[in-house]
Design a protein around this nucleic acid. Sequence first.
DNA 1: TTGACTTATATGTCTAGACATATAATCGTG
DNA 2: CACGATTATATGTCTAGACATATAAGTCAA
Lengths: 242, 242
Amino acid sequence: MSLATDTADQPTLYKRIRADIEKRILTGEWPPGHRIPFEHELVARYGCSRMTVNKALSELAQADLIERRRRAGSFVRRPQHQSAVLKIADMRAEITSLGRSYGYELMHRKLRTATAADRQRLGVKKAGKVIAIACRHSADSVPFAVEDRLIDLSSVPDAANADFSCEPPGSWLLHHVPWTEAEHTISAIVADDRTAEALDIAVGAPCLVIDRYTWRSARTITAVRLLYPGDSHRLVARFKGG
Amino acid sequence: MSLATDTADQPTLYKRIRADIEKRILTGEWPPGHRIPFEHELVARYGCSRMTVNKALSELAQADLIERRRRAGSFVRRPQHQSAVLKIADMRAEITSLGRSYGYELMHRKLRTATAADRQRLGVKKAGKVIAIACRHSADSVPFAVEDRLIDLSSVPDAANADFSCEPPGSWLLHHVPWTEAEHTISAIVADDRTAEALDIAVGAPCLVIDRYTWRSARTITAVRLLYPGDSHRLVARFKGG
DNA sequence: TTGACTTATATGTCTAGACATATAATCGTG
DNA sequence: CACGATTATATGTCTAGACATATAAGTCAA
């Protein structure tokens, strides 16, 4: 084994100090709550100036691995809870960022007085006007996702005049309506006849489903259901923990 | 108003420099790709030593707000787009919070030297030891999700001694190992024979798939694949936007 | 025992230098 | 023009100090 050459080839001193401490925390040798050696002790151990160990400890503190308290010392923090930031840019950005050409096709648009089903979906009681939209997003001319959306016109009156034949409703809303809250529900289904045709996949093929509800201060703006071919599309959420 | 005394009461110089730059980035005054002033220019502007502006810029770099390139300068990074906070607590919390009883069953556990496939999955080059685990989570004695996990022992040596026959590896890791970064990939598949049996669903039924990779400062900790019955389970992400 | 005051100390910030190192830009050559 | 060598320069790291500041701990009086 040519591994474990811990001492040699360290990039820089402060990084080595940081890595050393990090290792002890990760292995559990220094459990949460454990007091890390004082700066002056680390200075003695590594034979460097205080600024060098301070830089190592400051970075560990910025990364929330340790907590520093004046006069008391530095302490290992408890591991953080899990939460992920799920990035869902608008569809055009999502597709073009993959280096593929974006295509959009409005399949259906209807302005109507909200039906009972519409009201339930939007979570509103009054029967105002809504726009129902069905459209398809494609990447390199291959169906990427189909969208089934309902917009509450009493919350977004301007949407009645928007031209959704060229601009996807998601983009339009993103650029015209600020939102304060949203909820995503992710599930999986198998494609029925209609979905299979729209996505150009086989009946019975897996589909990833994202339902998104968007509000602005307790007022529903829009409800959208996105269907992705489940075996080809992957929704990636990269995030920083803390 | 006694507030808004911007110039007075500044905490420290480097924090003020950091806040100034952060503000310009967040307001869009300095868009992504924009080169922020060189250190020596900031030194002149703020009348301080280089170490002070260096500390401010280093922290912005650690926070991924800017990117620093030798000889070239420091540049504003692309900001994150729309994002949702997807909370995925550990499985026990997820199930008990639904008011259902949690059940756990270790199906398979093996400590081995990383195979080529393991290394690729973990994104590591060196062939260290890994633990491969397969287990099942159930709610009210009904299969809820099956888990297929790989833990990199060179990152989490203690995991070799953990008893995963009673405690789910996710819980153990959550309580023993802090993470800094993770990536989720969500997709959908239809159940094959083995999956169908493990989840007690029909072959060909939809399954929601979550692949999660977790790192601690560029070091892979674990890779896990979770399979949920797609028609019964719903993954909810509620979040606040701007 | 409790509260107020004092002190010791670990971290927080800062300086004015130094040398190292990666690399964009320039220059020179075939 | 293409390509390798050289140079200039911005960042990366480090030092040996300094003073500031929050606060744990000790002290003392009510």
